[in-house]
Design a protein around this nucleic acid. Structure first.
Lengths: 206, 206, 206, 206
DNA sequence: ATCTAACCGAGACGGTACGTCCAGTCTTGGA
DNA sequence: TCCAAGACTGGACGTACCGTCTCGGTTAGAT
């Protein structure tokens, strides 16, 4: 994930186990300490690894946390629940479930905050985390179009704009409710949210 | 804001100018350095104040930044634009304008991230920042009800639930588009967003 | 010793006790660990002092060790033993006694070695340590001249050259025997050395 | 020098060129960096050799530097200048010439300092360096006895004691003048030193 | 017109973490 | 078996801030 090294033949190869141990230790430390009290020295110790090893692979705390949190999003997928409304509820609940995990809560907003001043970090977040989620929106729209619930958008740019809007609305609302309002995203909320969103989509024809 | 002032009659009173200078210096430092590289010693120096003075008034970096950023939200208000749709667009654009300022971008998400592990901080954020925004939503709904654009909700609890949902959707979408997607919230986007939201509200009767 | 600070009125004054504790801890660490394994972090811990405090007062390990060792030379003095020969033996034995202490053995040669690449350090050593010893030679020669054992040198430059030669011979021989040959400087050796030196001085009229 | 070579028949033999390259690189690094900033990794790189190779042959920095410096003393010899006084001046100037080379200045005192806490290192220094010099003293005394300038010492122990004293005086004085007093050992100084020493020897009959 | 308590600046204090560097070891593939 | 390359653990480095603590000195309200 953080390696490019297309050609590095000689010398002792990097331990693959170390990567996994470090990322796991990072999540563990996020749970126990939160982002601001997490130290790379502590992560290294937890992973049974020298600090040097950690710095050899990641440029700093931000990059490390992005990768550690990104793995949490690997499990995201969109089961077919039979209707667009149900699919929206499903993705909302899945996203909420991830944000419920303390390692995600602590880490995600912090790196987003950092990314406001670091273009490379923003790109890394987009690649590792955001696009993983966005894919679900695109996939859900395609499925709904198959079912005939939504008109097939012919203009690809308009389709992209629409998907981006929906994505910001879904992800933004879930994050805001979870982290700012600090209220649970339960099935009831998901149902109400999906109803409003779906109504809006139908009304505007997006 | 941060003062208790229960009874402190005698002795030299605290300098009122220092407060303003410190908050201004904090915003300046946020712009130049961002949250993670902002140090209280530096803020004190910029404000022409001793570190002691700063610590006497704020518990730490988080509290200071919350207060410094909160002042940015003082200017928020909801001009009557004649229709609910226009009012929504207005609040969206106002909120986006604040998030466009680097001192807000850097600071806001960071303290929200910190607040995931600090209940007192979350409360402070809610009081100083979130409720200031939320008020606009409530006010907008009341105005729309006056105009007959929305049915008057009689159940106060349902009204609160509805306002909360709308607020999370508005604020969440704007924040997400600005900070995560890193795309501008311009008039076009505001109009499309308002259309979807309004359509949803109409469809669901919230 | 390391402070110049003619005018530093404001702020919390430096702890005088810390200086003494640090130098004492340095000597203790020299005895236990030797120069090369002595670390400033360890010295700070032993002295019950933060590393910062140590670095605020000394530029590095070399300077610290010079000051710590220099204090050992405070006790040097030249008791009048009645004859030049006895005085030479006395100063040889005193110098040897200091070199017998492990904190001096470890530290002294190391800083001399470092000083080959650091003019400022060499100057510090000269001021703090070497001149303290050299004084004894000058004093001994004056006393011998009083007794009539040596002719009074009228040319001041020749006197300085002579003193320098004698000093290098005395100090060099003691150091070399102690540290390089690793043989004890006992009374017998001192007597034989003094006899050779004195014979040479008499023969050459220095 | 550092090899045991008891029986190593099979496998690839060690490169003989590597040894020379490493020692040369060590001296080069001593000149450029001095002892304390010399690192084995850097030496290996300069020598075009892997660190492993270096560690296979030397136990550490001290041993390596001793060997590297020792080679400088290979050139020492005692040309017959016709008189004891001239011979003493000769050996003094030769020794001074070596100490004038920065690789010797930096390295020699440092390893002597280290040897105060390492008996094996002291032995290595004695064997590789000190005895090489001491031989000259013994040789000079023998030559002087042949010429009739000095009485032939019959007691071998007294002869050894005398040689040791002279050696400490000669080497000590030169080292002290060079490294501690930081003054040049020129012909004038050598002449004055030899005169005093010789006068002392004559007076005491050593 | 003092008194005096709380303020103020400056800066040293004990700590903690930083990110780098080096020591000395180990693991590759190739000679 | 040796070699070059380079990753590995471990630990010290010197720096930067943290939040606290003295200092000497100021300032305004109460006496």
């Amino acid at each position: 994930m953080q390696r490019s090294t297309p050609a590095a033949r000689t010398g002792r190869p990097r331990s693959a186990a170390a990567d996994a141990a470090i990322l796991e230790a990072t999540r563990e430390a996020l749970v126990e300490l939160g982002w601001s009290k997490l130290t790379l020295g502590d992560v290294a110790t937890r992973a049974g690894v020298a600090k040097t090893t950690l710095y050899r692979r990641w440029a700093g705390k931000n990059e490390l946390v992005v990768d550690a949190v990104a793995e949490l999003f690997d499990e995201l997928e969109l089961p077919d629940r039979g209707s667009l409304a149900a699919d929206i509820e499903g993705v909302v609940l899945q996203f909420a479930a991830i944000l419920d995990r303390p390692e995600a809560r602590s880490g995600l907003m912090a790196v987003v905050a950092e990314s406001t001043r670091d273009e490379a970090l923003r790109e890394r977040i987009r690649t590792s985390i955001v696009d993983r989620q966005k894919r679900l929106v695109v996939q859900g729209r395609a499925r709904a179009a198959c079912r005939g619930e939504l008109p097939t958008e012919t203009d690809p740019e308009a389709a992209a704009r629409g998907a981006a809007l929906i994505f910001d609305m879904v992800a933004g609302a879930v994050v805001h409710r979870t982290l700012v309002s600090a209220e649970p995203v339960d099935e009831d909320w998901a149902r109400r949210f999906a109803a409003v969103l779906l109504g809006g989509l139908a009304a505007t024809g997006i």
